[in-house]
Amino acid sequence: MVPAVPPPVRPNPVRAYFGNIRRAVSSTFEGMTVTMSWLFRRPSTIQYPDRTEKPVREMLPETYRGLLEVDLSRCTACLLCAKTCPLGCISIETCKHPDGAREFQTFDIDNGLCMFCGLCAEACNFDALAHTREFEASVSSAEQLTVRFVDRPGRLVAKAKDLPPRRPRGSILAALIPGFGRRRRRAAPPEPPASPAPAPAAGAEGPENPEGTA
């Protein structure tokens, strides 16, 4: 296991001298041909953020774990996500109406705390909480990092038996925070949002869907 170390051999000094020169010259030459060849190869970088072929978020795979968003119309407030989160960055509060229906008080995700591990989204049984491909999350103060998903009072908690279809990923976040992560894009491609204006989901809370798709 422990090998014997062979004694170092001392080469002929004259040969070593000229050998050093030869190796220095030839290896420098080799290295320079390599670097020279790169002048003819395609650069591998892209010019983020404004000169990419398409927005970076669309180059990301579907599996990408970006900022979290929740589709409240599908959320049953089972609190599994909040319990799974190792950091406790999700805070959910509901209150109960006398008629038995439950209403969201808060559904906040603190992106300043979130470490994008994906455990919460995995725990969600109704595909309500999911990672988007949004990643440009910089804001000007720590408080703004908390995304408040309950946008209006009286949003009812969904029932597990009749859930509307999941709204396209990213659309909720985009609607909630206008210009979130899109501020710096000068040459914004005129593409419409990922979903061709989905029919307003027949949610439990009625026909209106004020966010739409920004």
């Binding site: 030459f29 320079m32 041909t33 190869r41 650069p43």
Partner: peptide, 29 residues
């Protein structure tokens, strides 16, 4: 000799690059 070496270095990667990226590697200065 250096021109030939540069050319060889370039050609080694060319096909693989096309397969990987779907684009040509050639991009002159």
């Amino acid at each position: 000799v250096s021109a030939l070496r540069v050319r060889r270095t370039f050609r080694v990667d060319r096909e693989h690059y096309r397969e990987m990226e779907g684009r040509d590697l050639w991009y002159p200065p």
